[in-house]
């Protein structure tokens, strides 16, 4: 479903990604862990081309997407993205946040878009909040609206960039529940997170990244209980503690 081949990315003198290669099959949920500054977020942004890789290839559903002649706007509709800081459109209500992309990007008629948005908000448990502005919602509710907004575009896969790390502890559960349900329904997902419970119960595989490279790859058990690499061991030791 998603294939990444030898991606390199520099930000000025900083070498952020040093040859990343991996494969995500349809319906898989991949969790990426690693210390901050290891390039996890940049990797996600390279997949939907919010950041353009310097070299290497990105395939989505068999299509080589980072080459000339492919519109970035089209690529980004294929993969939904959820951000650490939610980034809901401040001037729009919850339901308008979900319908904006449908009506303005996909050209869907307004009524149809509203109907679809209602279903999605109900799916993330926020049917009652459709007319609330982002500032009137809790962090957890905002993040669930953001998930609904991404799902509205009917993406083939979803990217989550630390979706729970900006949340107060009491709101983390509700967001993880939505994500777990999504994974069970067979959505292909790549999740950057340090929620070990979520990683153990949902992830088909876990990738450990450090300094722009994938150091180790395996099931939750492999990574958390018997990591092979020294760097993995020390990182896992720090976050499990």
């Amino acid at each position: 479903m998603i294939r990444v081949e030898d991606i390199q990315k520099h930000f000025g003198a900083l070498h952020v990604l040093r040859g990343i290669t991996f494969d995500v099959k349809k319906g898989e949920a991949i969790v990426i862990i690693g210390p901050s500054g290891s390039g996890k977020s940049t990797l996600l942004r390279c997949i939907n081309l919010l950041v353009e890789p310097d070299s290497g290839k990105v395939f989505i559903d068999g299509v080589h997407v980072n080459r000339h002649g492919i519109r970035h706007e089209w690529v980004r509709q294929q993969v939904g993205m959820v951000f650490q800081s939610f980034n809901l459109f401040t001037h729009l209500t919850a339901i308008e946040n979900v319908t904006l992309g449908l009506t303005r990007v996909k050209g869907m008629p307004h009524d149809e878009a509203v109907e679809k948005a209602r279903k999605l908000l109900a799916r993330v448990g926020l049917a009652a909040k459709e007319n609330a502005y982002p500032a009137e919602l809790s962090g957890g509710q905002q993040q669930r609206v953001a998930i609904a907004r991404a799902l509205a575009m009917d993406p083939k896969a979803m990217l989550f960039d630390e979706p729970t790390s900006a949340l107060d502890p009491e709101y983390i559960r509700e967001v993880l529940d939505v994500m777990t349900a999504l994974a069970r329904e067979g959505m292909t997902m790549i999740v950057v997170t340090h929620e070990m419970g979520f990683a153990s119960s949902v992830a088909s595989r876990i990738l450990f990244m450090d300094a722009g490279m994938i150091i180790e790859e395996g099931t939750a058990e492999d990574i958390f209980q018997n990591p092979k690499e020294e760097r993995t061991r020390s990182f896992v030791g720090k976050i499990l503690r």
């Binding site: 706007e73 980004r76 459109f89 401040t90 991404a150």
Partner: peptide, 15 residues
């Protein structure tokens, strides 16, 4: 206007 707003708009396919 926060840069995250632009990023979010671009991420759902806005030019």
């Amino acid at each position: 206007v926060h840069s995250g707003q632009i990023e979010a708009a671009r991420a759902i396919g806005f030019s």
